[in-house]
Design a protein around this nucleic acid. Structure first.
Lengths: 262, 262
DNA sequence: CAGCGCATTGATGTATACATGACATCGGAA
DNA sequence: TTCCGATGTCATGTATACATCAATGCGCTG
């Protein structure tokens, strides 16, 4: 779906792998997001379309589309006089985002509990829990175990999100998690180095179990409360990680967070 | 900031007043939204860019931008093969949207209560309450009183939304309310004709008072619970309105709602 | 007569040309 | 020397031209 006016073979911009088949707009969006999250484009900096064009290697139109979408996501904000600037986040913003996720996930599990879930969904959840149990119980040496935990954890949360059977709720949760530091596993890696890692993973996993149990027992309020509390684990991890620059470097989008509020 | 290649004076498309100073993109977005909400473009229908161009009188670029934004808002959904289609909503979708709003507004007031609000904000809220009191106590003949209620109610909810002092939360609430039937006053007009009108407005207004009191007393949990319950008034009104086609015509975006699920 | 394949049509995605507004720099006057 | 204004440059917003892809209809074949 493309109208390459074929500008004599793109000027050798790096193509991060999955870009292959994607449309130029998607390519631009991924590339720009990457530049923002890594901090290569500093928070607060104005984003000139032409500068991005040169950096990404696609024309202005898809760049523009990408900027619009990223503005919707909140990673970029429109400047009154036109154009966009990379957005900076305060520690408070991050806390609020986490609280927001907790609240919305809480809503999702409450609705799931009240409305009931399918046997298939129940099995999927149990299965994920079992696999998470293995990781948490196993050796936590090296980043492998943590990466596996993050993957499974993300899957569990995605499953939970869809459980209410509500497109509207699901969409909304996706929107919150567009901010990378709001994602459920955002601070796992930051905690990996500390001695607390196993303790925190144990707590989190126990909450996972409790939430599933509450949903199956149709205890909506309990499921909701648990899910909220679960998200606060991330807030606690944020508080710890915020003390060290090195830890924040492990957090996705950590470069966007201004620790000492400007 | 515009590059009108000056196509010899636009072909006499209607300009709905506020369009005057706005950019073409904004103009397109407003016009398209209007077409969608009024049902002039039927839910499910595919939106051809060129057709819209002819209808609105702006070129493809701003139309495209408008479509992208409306897709983010959820009024329009992307078609896998490209392009967009007007989205249809089920009664369940509407209920979920209202529940979502209640949950998020609940979060906002809880945070407001926990963090405390400024004296100025408190005064503003009290002032709005007093003016709402007048309307509710006064004669409810004709649409004037209801329109006044809707305006004040919208303002009260907007104020509440900002009370937490959290950009993140505020943004998210705005997103939910992009769906017009999720707005706080969506079903007021539909209830205006029925004899229930005064009773329901009285209940709603009492909840407004209670919420403000809870916030001032720093009773976060109470404020949250009240705010949620407040939104359920809208759900009830939906249930009533859904019985009559005429009532649904009074609801903003009512044309998008497929009553008997497809 | 039905089913499959191909061509044609129309749309979207992309690139670029152009006009307008914003911002910075430079010059002049007080 | 400082402040104000004018001018020039640059970037954005918009319009349009072009290339590619999906869908549809027709013709051919079994």
């Amino acid at each position: 779906m493309a109208g390459t006016a074929s500008p004599e073979a793109a000027p050798e911009t790096v193509r991060p792998r999955e870009d292959r088949g994607a449309s130029q707009s998607v390519r631009a969006q991924l590339a720009l997001r990457e530049l923002l999250l890594s901090g290569e484009i500093a928070p607060g900096a104005r984003l000139s379309e032409l500068a991005i064009v040169e950096r990404i290697g696609v024309s202005r139109t898809p760049v523009r589309a990408a900027l619009t979408l990223l503005a919707e996501e909140g990673l970029v904000e429109p400047i009154p006089s036109g154009g966009f600037a990379a957005r900076a986040f305060s520690e408070q913003d991050v806390r609020d985002s986490i609280e927001l996720r907790g609240t919305l996930e809480g809503l999702a599990v409450r609705l799931a509990a009240e409305r009931g879930i399918s046997a298939l969904a129940a099995r999927t959840l149990q299965d994920l829990l079992a696999r998470l149990d293995e990781v948490v119980a196993g050796p936590l040496a090296g980043p492998d175990a943590f990466e596996r935990y993050i993957a499974l954890n993300a899957e569990w949360h995605r499953e939970i999100t869809g459980l209410a059977g509500s497109r509207v709720v699901e969409r909304q949760i996706e929107r919150v998690m567009a901010l990378p530091f709001a994602s459920p596993s955002a601070f796992v890696m930051a905690q990996a180095q500390t001695g607390e890692a196993r303790r925190i993973l144990t707590l989190a996993q126990d909450q996972h179990h409790a939430v599933v149990e509450a949903i199956l027992q149709r205890e909506g309020a309990r499921a909701e409360a648990l899910m909220r509390e679960h998200s606060r684990l991330a807030s606690r991890n944020l508080a710890n990680a915020a003390r060290s620059r090195q830890a924040m470097a492990q957090v996705p989008g950590g470069a966007l967070i201004r620790l000492r509020p400007v």
